[in-house]
């Protein structure tokens, strides 16, 4: 009886969780006339891919997709490298200012970057980086450096120092020891950090809409945001765009779920 009740509750919650996803997929596959007609159909009468085709023919979705991909890959790559280096130093050395630096990084995690949206716009303008993907990349790296560094530090701390010392006794320099011995052990953590950073960049909205308004530099969220501000929302295209932009993140997050959970809880539970 208890087990049945538990199964029912879990089933209902799963349904509630998945239904919106189902609904957006279904909407993206319905012909336009069917999306805006009553009664609502819970299964498309006729499946169509026209909304997906529209995205790439009417809107330059291919360009946005490529822009998002480029910005996210470069920024996530850079931030991961910076995290690998910074996290190592914070985990393995004590030096003056270490505590202050950690605090300065942690504080940025409590304060959203958009609080300085105006000044950031001015800075980008001064540096001539408005409407340029490079500008977004730089800001995204800054946005994610504290997180990447702190999480990497946590991963390093789980690796025994003896591992590196052994390599150093064999005559390897610190850097060589790090690259040859530590990094391979860390690979899953590094991959998880990279993916997490990638998804954050892929999804970022407010900075992107502030810095970018030219068609050839738009990322997916910027483009979708401009769909909204039009008088009527074309929900077919919107649904298709949502599916296209959420698909990669679903796959990536599924791959690193365990690490996200670990990373998230490590901070709070050990607190």
């Amino acid at each position: 009886m208890r087990r049945l009740a538990k199964a029912i509750v879990l089933g209902v919650w799963l349904l509630i969780t998945l239904f919106p996803l189902y609904w957006i997929v279904i909407t993206s596959l319905k012909p336009k006339a069917e999306i805006f007609s009553l009664p609502i159909r819970y299964w498309p009468g006729k499946v169509t891919f026209e909304h997906y085709a529209d995205l790439f023919s009417f809107a330059d979705f291919g360009v946005y997709l490529l822009n998002s991909l480029l910005v996210s890959l470069v920024a996530a790559g850079a931030v991961t490298m910076i995290g690998v280096l910074g996290g190592y130093t914070l985990a393995r050395f004590t030096f003056p200012g270490r505590g202050a630096l950690m605090l300065a990084f942690l504080v940025t995690q409590m304060i959203p970057l958009f609080i300085a949206l105006g000044p950031l716009y001015l800075l980008m303008s001064d540096l001539d980086l408005l409407n340029r993907l490079a500008g977004l990349m730089l800001v995204y790296v800054a946005m994610l450096v504290p997180f990447a560094t702190i999480i990497m530090r946590g991963f390093y701390e789980r690796i025994p120092v003896a591992l590196e010392e052994a390599a150093q006794v064999d005559g390897a320099s610190r850097l060589v020891a790090m690259v040859r011995v530590v990094i391979p052990v860390m690979l899953p953590g590094i991959a998880a950090t990279f993916i997490f950073a990638f998804v954050q960049c892929w999804n970022e909205l407010f900075l992107a809409i502030t810095f970018i308004d030219s068609e050839d530099a738009k990322t997916i969220p910027v483009a979708m945001n401009s769909f909204i501000t039009q008088y009527d929302i074309d929900w077919g295209s919107m649904a298709a765009a949502t599916v296209v932009s959420v698909l990669p993140t679903l796959v990536l997050f599924a791959a690193i779920r365990r690490y996200i959970v670990e990373g998230l809880t490590a901070g709070a539970v050990k607190g």
């Binding site: 910074g86 130093t89 630096l101 300065a104 940025t108 970057l113 800075l123 800054a142 450096v145 560094t149």
Partner: peptide
């Protein structure tokens, strides 16, 4: 090792 991260955070967050 720390310089790149610090530069980014100072320039694009704290400043």
């Amino acid at each position: 090792c720390l310089l790149p991260g610090v530069v980014f955070v100072v320039l694009f967050t704290y400043y």
